[in-house]
Write a protein that binds this DNA or RNA. Structure first.
Lengths: 149, 149
DNA sequence: CTAATTTCAGTGGTACTGACATAA
DNA sequence: CTTATGTCAGTAACACTGAAATTA
């Protein structure tokens, strides 16, 4: 028995659901594109963060990328295995490792920049340039608020 | 060595990343709120769909909720276990089950409506009413576009 | 025969928790 | 003693694939 009240179509406009569906599609698009080059989004996040802020400890990388400390270990292992970053002991604090991007890591990052740009374009294909900016603005406001709400 | 080029801050405005972070937070907020009542978002999706379209086969529910047919089995098992829906054989097509919402399922749905409303409000707390509508519009356009090329 | 439906078994990336040893 | 760091083990919900059995 369908109801004829306003909440009959509960699901269709539920923001959390729309967010989830859009993010799933975006993650899959980006993930597939990166996987075709043997990378994952965390790899890109770490490389991009190293390019922006320079060498850092794993704890710092975790804060900046929002990849959990515990999960970052495997990511750094994979990146070192590919020669994209180097892990060395911090002489000033022997609890820490210093992660440094190699030259090959820099080249890899610029390669992945291209992959990402294409993927983002696929993700946003349904929106005008104005709407893309508007969406970015709204999402930025959302995550900003969540981080110090 | 931080770069001073425009792509230095690659991550901060990457739409797929913003989408992912916002969706993760939203999923967690909604998921926690539902979990406090012993429910998950798929349970809500199934109940809401049954309320809107009436009794349906699992294949129909899968299409409407976008829960995979294989995953839907467990969801229906859980809902029947709680007496919220009933699973019976379709007399007209013996491959199918007919899933029907019980009266208790209807009460449960209205209970969860309240839970969802609160959770959505938390999720969108950083946005004005106008921005909330705008976000909903943009996300709707995105998922709409994804669903038909 | 092919096609649809339900079900089960399993995979993989992600988000997250807890604990431990080491060192500040 | 407390705190921070890196590491490991493990959980849970989710998205998705493949295949088997049944029936149309």
């Amino acid at each position: 028995m369908p109801e004829n009240q306003p909440e009959a179509a509960r699901l269709r406009t539920l923001p959390s659901r729309l967010l989830s569906m859009a993010a799933t599609h975006a993650d899959r698009t980006v993930g597939d594109a990166l996987a075709a080059r043997g990378a994952r989004k965390w790899h890109y996040a770490v490389l991009a963060t190293l390019a922006e802020f320079g060498p850092a400890s794993q704890a710092e990388l975790s804060e900046r990328t929002h990849v959990y400390r515990s999960d970052l270990v495997a990511v750094i292992n994979e990146l070192t295995g590919q020669g994209l970053v180097e892990r060395s002991a911090d002489p000033g604090d022997r609890r820490r490792n210093v992660i440094t991007m190699t030259d090959e890591g820099g080249r890899r990052l610029r390669e992945l920049d291209g992959v990402l740009a294409e993927a983002e374009d696929v993700v946003l294909a349904g929106l005008s340039p104005t709407d893309r900016e508007e969406l970015t603005r709204l999402l930025t406001a959302l995550v900003r608020h969540h981080r110090h709400g």
